[in-house]
Amino acid sequence: MRWKFWQTEKSAVPAWWQTYQRELAMFSYAPETALGELRFVVLDTETNGLNPRNAALLSIGAITVKDWSIHVAEQYATRLEPPHSLDPEAIKIHGILPGPSSGQVDSESALAALVSLVGTAIIVGHHVRFDLAVINRELRRLTGGTLRNPTLDTIDLARRLKGNTPYSNPGDYTLDKLAEEYQLRPADRHTAPGDAFLTGLLLLKLLRRLEDRGVKTYRDLMR
């Protein structure tokens, strides 16, 4: 039946995605919003490869930063059901073995939870383009859409603080190097939530330093 066909078509877009899109469409930060009033969601993922076209998501960690604080209660962390074959090198690094095990969820549940945490926040990550590329590839498959939030990369923020250095070594901007430079104690490195937390701390330190240099508002930050 025509009516039934229409409903099936409509329900192909999941409810959580509709909610996300509706909220995002109705929201944007005023340019004068102070840094402390912005809501950030810092995320990190672990994948089984480095090519965003085919790398599978193994785990996701995301945490909320606002009011110059990390809100531990507003976080999301999960492992995903892995595909059947995994790059042995990735297993060595992340310790995530193939095959389903307890505490793992399917890709749609994981992304639904992540997207509802993200909401209208500014998405932050370290080398976040890669994480977003993998997440958006999955989202496109599930919903036909991608995340449209404003996005910040902690690498870019760190570069901004360094000023106009003509030459910069990419090796100086790894999360480990920056954690060392900003005296953060890395722990649980190479787990998604551990890296998201560390990146959150780094974000706070970078934002404070940028603020000292005149980056006071949303407009200044996103320029």
Partner: peptide, 10 residues
């Protein structure tokens, strides 16, 4: 996976 950040705080 639970809240591994909370575990760290714990």
């Amino acid at each position: 996976m639970g809240n591994t950040i909370a575990v760290r705080i714990y």
